[in-house]
């Protein structure tokens, strides 16, 4: 009787261990499969909803902001009088600091041929203030626009900019399609 009891206890431990291992394997496998099959989401700005309020520069938890200006060259008019580069009341159309709208001089103006100029954003200098975006949208084709740069974004559970965005332009999008770049992305989505 005593021997039978001992065997029973040993069997119980063996079976229990097997079941525990199987359960652990199942849970780990399930989590792994979920990671593989479930789409990751990230924060992004809809450039057609953005009202260029400037809050992206001051509200992001990152310093400088993970929001940067990007340029759709396809839409650009390559204008000499660029509303995104020059202050509205600029004295001259030149690269002089007092004429530049960008507070960090993050836009480079390059002469191409008379009368065309190319404008390139230096991402390291851009703070995402949207001054150039507002100037371009107000006076030009709207080729300059803001995007959240994913390798700079911490992908917070609750984006501090999205919480304050007055036009609700920031939402979660699938990580596989993480950018809404004007030209390929249209107002209708």
């Amino acid at each position: 009787m005593e021997n039978s009891y001992k065997n029973s206890r040993r069997d119980f431990i063996k079976k229990g261990t097997r079941v525990s291992l199987l359960l652990t394997l199942g849970v780990v496998g399930g989590i792994g499969a979920r990671h593989l099959t479930t789409e990751k989401y990230v924060w992004q700005i809809d450039p057609f909803k953005c009202t260029q309020c400037g809050r992206c520069a001051t509200s992001c938890v990152m310093t400088p902001s993970a929001v940067k200006c990007i340029h759709s060259f396809d839409l650009c008019g390559y204008c000499d009088l660029c509303g995104g580069y020059l202050k509205p009341d600029a004295n001259q159309r030149s690269t002089a600091a007092e004429n530049q709208l960008c507070p960090t001089a993050a836009i480079q103006r390059k002469y191409i041929e008379e009368p065309y100029f190319e404008y390139v954003i230096d991402e390291k200098l851009c703070i995402g203030c949207a001054k150039c975006v507002k100037g371009c949208t107000s006076f030009g084709n709207g080729s300059l626009h803001l995007q959240i740069i994913q390798n700079r974004c911490l992908n917070c559970n609750q984006c501090s900019i999205a919480r304050l965005c007055p036009s609700e332009a920031i939402s979660r999008v699938k990580a596989s399609n993480a950018y809404k770049v004007k030209g390929s992305f249209t107002k209708e989505g």
Binding site: G54, R55, T58
Partner: peptide, 19 residues
């Protein structure tokens, strides 16, 4: 505190109303 409808003045806002 900073609420969407009670935000302090933004130093980077570009005001074009005068134009």
């Amino acid at each position: 505190s900073s609420k969407p409808d009670e935000l302090p003045e933004n130093p980077y806002a570009l005001n074009l109303t005068s134009f």
